[in-house]
Each structure stands twice: as structure tokens, then as C-alpha cells.
Design a protein around this nucleic acid. Sequence first.
DNA 1: GCCAACGTTGGC
DNA 2: GCCAACGTTGGC
Length: 141
Amino acid sequence: MNNKTSFWLVKQEPSKYSWETFLKDGGTYWDGVRNYQARNNLQLMTKGDRVFFYHSVTGKEIVGIAEVTREAYPDPTTDDSRWVVIDLKPIKSLVHPVSLEEIKIHKDLQENALVRQSRLSVMPITKKESQVILKLGKTSI
DNA sequence: GCCAACGTTGGC
DNA sequence: GCCAACGTTGGC
């Protein structure tokens, strides 16, 4: 990680693809994004960027952090050329998962899309926000 | 090009 | 299970 490293957050329902499965797999390509704003964020990711993994619907907490190992390329699960995937591999689980509730009450996280735009599935996280999340998660990377 | 209808996501 | 927020679709 260097000072060009960006931070992101991706959402996934654990019933569809959980952090535990991700750990077991040791990495995956991140498919299924069918929203232009989320797609645009995927395309902005560069190798080495850090990605928080959020469990939506069930759990509603940030559970771990991953690393971008391959930048955007065409989604292999569709013929539609509009969509892309990235490759991710797990770095570590958060010592203490950071719940949506904690995020909502923390003054430095109010502006994040997780709070403001609940339906967006891939979003940028500022450096400051990422530090706050790591602190809340009692985790360092 | 507008907008109503409809579908999906995700918090509650 | 409900519904708000938002995106997409299709008629005009």
C-alpha cells in the first residue's frame, strides 16, 4: 500500500456470496454489477486498491478488507459489453465487524454513500473514512 | 424528451 | 413483509 492506494466498498448479500466463502475461495472476480454508477467505480479501481466487504440485508456490517488484484475487464458471465468485473483477493477479516448502525452514528461517516445512497453497490471511500472504519474495526493493514 | 409504470435493492 | 429510493422502460 502506498499513498496512491484508493479505498472502496462493495456490497454483497451473504446468502449470495459471503465473506466466509470469499476467504475459502481465496479470491474471486466481482461480477453481477448492473448499475452504471457502480460500474464506473469498478473501472476506476487500480491494482493494489483496498476494498471493504460489506454484508447487506443480513448482517449489515463491514466484515473484511480485500485487495484489487486485476483491474476492470469484460464480465465473463455476460455477452453484454457494457459490464465489467475486477478480481479481488481477501486480505483480512475485521477484528470487530463495523455495523451500519455504527457507521450511521459516526460523524465522520455521515457523508458516505452507504448512508446517503443505500442502493449503490460499489462506492468510493475516502482516506479519512477508511481510517475511521479500520479504527472502529480494531484492525490495521 | 417527458413522465408514468414498473422492477430491484436494501433497510426496517 | 413492507415500502422508500432509485433506475429502467416504453408510450406518447
